[in-house]
Nucleic acid binder design. Structure first.
Length: 520
DNA sequence: AGCCTTTGACCAGCG
DNA sequence: TCGCTGGTCAAAGGC
């Protein structure tokens, strides 16, 4: 069993202790000109880009509120000072892939981001822009299935889903593991990827079906939630539990979900269908039920109007015997999913089509959940990383079945339909992901808002001043080891009680739980 | 018949 | 101890 040191090593191989989203994307794209940005361009909400989803590019000064270069440099220094992450030197211009290659001694295929560029790149200068525009055909899930989000043994072969395999790495034991995302168990499924002679590059293939979602229609219920985080967490669990007798080997012929990307495509399409249903019929329940199942069956066992939530929260259990997976779902009055919190990992393969497919409200939930559970699907013993991390607080029963002693960690990405990364009033990655319970406020700051509130009349600078407290909540959930996926509008208004307002238009709020250490 | 959702009640944790 | 809150149970009814 790996200890906490292992975890740190895992994490450290891949990212700074407090990686900022921009560095995160920088790593993804192999561009690490992270600290060199001066003044960030105003976020661009491309209204003409037929729904192109704009993420900040690697150069985006996410921490713009506090982010002058000095501070960025200070952050970098902090990163350097954290000994176990010594390889993450801010001076390094090498991208993640290059670092991987350097470390592993192979030529890591570089992520082909050409496809990510908008077709009219020459016009909008997106290619030079600090923003990364995801064209309509490319789902955020696809993007987030980046090399840093690997270890989905269920996903299609790709350097991002972890199906492509990495050669055995001499460093891949203990603190030398290439990353948390590429943790032990998943390594087995990836160990050969870069040995493939022709794998010199990888291009994300956009899914036409995903376009409707990206256009930001009514229903901000994308399935691209925290699939990667689940991947990671799942891998983390497996890493911790690699000696579990019931371990499901990623390489096994396992009738598990087809894959993340494919699943995403499916779910995206389904969501779009849901949207249509909702818009046309107004029957939310029917619209929800119109979505296809994700291979897991869910039974709603409760619903409650929780105080902190505008909308009632529904409780679902996986109907598979002995499967501990549960999920909490909040949805708006219109049926838009505003928050999903998953707990546990499936200890069984997907069950195939829901017996009552097309019936019941769990369907739409499953849409989003599907990608996630596809990650957890090959977890074992019903243990869950979230459960494990829950033990940090021990005040939540979710996941208590896990006896893992792990530190969960994560990156919280909060987004809205523009896809622009927007700094909160103080985005400080170095503190955002610290584990101090008292730093919930920092969690707010640390959330990276893809901020566009859909109202359009509020300047970015004004929005930036806002302090949406919602991420604080999510950070808490994250600390508790729960997967939190929130889809909806962040109003950004301090005075507003509700921060998630799907009724204000297309938007999405994604909480991605990744792999940043919680160091109690 | 089996599985689902709904919904009020119950329970446990917390301040 | 009490009230609040969130999570779960279980009966009832629908599909």
């Amino acid at each position: 069993m790996g200890g906490l040191d292992d975890h740190g090593g895992i994490i450290g191989d891949w990212m700074a202790p407090s990686p900022s989203p921009r560095s995160f994307f920088a790593a993804m794209l192999g561009e690490t000109d992270v600290g060199s940005r001066t003044v960030p361009e105003p976020p661009k909400f491309d209204n003409n880009n037929d729904g192109g989803f704009t993420f900040p590019g690697p150069n985006r000064q996410v921490m713009s509120e506090i982010g002058d270069e000095n501070q960025s440099g200070q952050m970098g220094n902090q990163v350097m000072k954290s000994g176990e992450f010594g390889e993450q030197k801010p001076s390094s211009r090498a991208g993640l892939v290059e670092r991987m290659a350097a470390r592993a001694g192979h030529n890591a295929p570089r992520l082909n981001t050409d496809i990510v560029k908008p077709s009219d790149a020459s016009q909008n200068q997106q290619s030079q822009s600090p923003y990364l525009t995801i064209p309509p055909g490319l789902s955020p899930t696809s993007l987030l299935d980046s090399p840093v989000f690997l270890s989905n043994s269920l996903a299609q072969p790709s350097p991002t889903t972890g199906k492509f395999q990495f050669p055995p790495n001499g460093n891949s034991n203990g603190n030398g593991r290439s990353s948390l995302m590429f943790s032990d168990s998943s390594n087995r499924s990836k160990d050969n990827f870069f040995e493939e002679p022709n794998n010199t590059s990888f291009a994300f293939k956009p899914f036409p079906n995903s376009a409707p979602f990206l256009r930001g229609h009514v229903n901000p219920s994308p399935p691209f939630m925290s699939a990667q985080s689940f991947q990671h967490n799942e891998a983390f669990v497996q890493s911790e539990k690699q000696f579990q007798p019931q371990k499901i080997e990623p390489n096994q012929n396992y009738s598990l979900p087809i894959g993340n990307l494919e699943g995403s495509q499916k779910h995206l399409k389904e969501h779009h269908d849901d949207d249509a249903d909702q818009r046309t019929s107004g029957d939310i329940a029917n619209a929800n039920s119109a979505s296809a199942d994700d291979g897991y069956n869910w039974r709603k066992y409760g619903q409650k109007q929780v105080k902190g939530s505008e909308y009632p929260r529904s409780y679902y259990k996986c109907t598979h015997p002995n499967c501990p997976v549960k999920k909490k779902v909040e949805r708006s009055h219109e049926g838009h999913i505003t928050e999903i919190i998953y707990k546990g990992a499936h200890n069984h393969p997907k069950l195939g089509p829901n017996r009552r497919s097309g019936n019941g409200s769990s369907g739409v939930l499953s849409d989003m959940q599907g990608d996630v559970n596809e990650q957890g699907g090959n977890s074992v013993d019903g243990s869950s990383v979230w459960g494990a991390s829950m033990q940090h607080k021990g005040s939540n029963n979710w996941g208590q079945e896990s006896n893992l002693e792990v530190t969960s960690s994560g990156l919280i990405m909060q987004g809205q339909n523009s896809g622009q990364f927007e700094s909160s009033d103080a985005v400080d990655g170095s503190t955002t992901f610290s584990n101090d319970e008292e730093e919930d406020d920092r969690a707010t700051h640390g959330s990276v808002s893809l901020g566009y509130d859909g109202e359009g009349d509020e300047s970015e600078s004004k929005r930036r001043r806002h302090t949406c407290q919602a991420p604080k909540k999510y950070f808490k959930e994250w600390q508790r080891g729960c997967i939190v996926v929130n889809v909806g509008n962040v109003t950004g208004d301090e005075d507003e009680e509700e921060h998630i307002n799907p009724e204000k238009g297309p938007s999405l709020l994604i909480i991605l739980l990744l792999s940043f250490p919680i160091a109690k």
